[in-house]
Computed example of a mutant assay.
Amino acid sequence: MRRRAAVAIAACLLVALTAACEPTGGGLPDPSRTSDRPAPTDVSEHESGPESPIAYGLQVPRGATQIGPLVRYRSNRLIEAYRPELDAAQAQRDAEQQRRRTEAEANGTPLPPPTPTPTTEPSDDTFNLLDTPPKPDTTISLMRVDGSPTQVVRSMVAQIDTVLPDAGIIRSNISTYCEERDRRITECRVEAEGRTANKRDLKITLSVDPGDIKTRTSPPATNQNPVMELKIEYVGDPRLGQLNRQGDGNVDVPRSVSTRDTSGLIWPRMDEDAPATAPLLNDWREPLGSTLLLSGFQPAFAAVATTKALDADRIASSFAETVNDEPAKDVVEDLNEITTTYIAKGKNGEVAMASYVLSARGYYAMLFYTPPDKK
């Protein structure tokens, strides 16, 4: 059934991306040379507007736009919790296949050895042998801030405070979460951990990148706007987190914030986006035939769309392999999407995570990099 679902999804994909990007060479643009400035990036077909659901009641806030799909994957804790069941199911399947092979040989009609067939279809769900494969427990949303950054950040803070009422969130002053230089915001980060009303133990992390205030240059494909990465992790008992999930999103989060911010901080204006040739993600180079939808300097991420499924998968796997040539792999079939996630840890502690997402909207590679000092 899951294989048929994968084929059905692949058959209905409608992707019309034809733009290509040059290999990265490095260096930021010269502001005096206006002809070098990248044209505004139009990714409207890959956008999700305000109030689009993310997870546990959290939504895309007004004044922001989600770019690309949600990245939904299983944490290592969840995988390890269900690994004994998976190992047992695989052993039972292997024993059954061997029994059939032995019987066929005894009857004089040996079965042909299995031969792998090249295919562009994604693999089956890693836990497809289980009657009920565990659902993803981690979700990441990548967003571009199109409205007032202060209002957007405060709206997200208010949402987090509503979902985790005992986390000690401060709504009225963004300086609690934002670093500044001469009152200009250089970055914002909110980390909250607590329990929801329906007793889900969560960790929520919101990171905001306004761009490089020294060069007044924003990350590629941001249209000189700040970008946000929102990560929601279930951190309670992995098995308990799979039970009674129907009410997880039954939270009425605030749509806006009316009270005045008391921080007095200023969001710096960016003159232009860095070109596609700017270094990203540990000097990762965007391959030809792909379209960069959104990126961030801090935290380091990139959302990429391709016209071919195989290209998106190769981008994701090859990026992870730049840190470790044997990344861990997990495949999730859920919510009419198939997500293949590669996670690689380097010797120095850096982490490269990449998800290939196959959905009805297109083929995506969602890349994330955590340097050693940011673990």
Score class of each variant (00 low, 15 high):
R2S: 08
R4W: 11
R4M: 13
A10E: 14
A11D: 15
A19T: 07
A19Q: 10
C21M: 02
C21S: 07
E45K: 06
A55I: 01
L70Q: 06
V71D: 10
E80M: 13
Y82A: 01
D94F: 10
Q97W: 13
R101P: 15
E103V: 08
G108D: 08
T109V: 08
P113I: 06
P114V: 05
T119Q: 06
P122M: 02
D124S: 02
D125V: 05
L130V: 10
P133W: 11
T138G: 08
T150F: 03
T150V: 06
T162S: 01
I170E: 14
S175V: 04
E179A: 06
D182N: 15
R189H: 10
E191N: 08
R200L: 13
L206C: 04
T217G: 00
S218G: 11
P219V: 07
A221M: 07
A221F: 15
E229N: 08
E233A: 03
V235P: 14
G249M: 11
T262P: 08
S263G: 06
I266D: 15
I266V: 12
W267R: 00
A278P: 15
P287A: 02
S290H: 09
F297D: 00
Q298D: 13
A303L: 07
V304Q: 02
T307Y: 13
F319K: 01
E321D: 11
E326T: 10
L335T: 13
L335E: 14
T339N: 03
T339M: 08
I343T: 14
K347T: 12
V351F: 13
A352M: 11
V357S: 00
F368E: 09
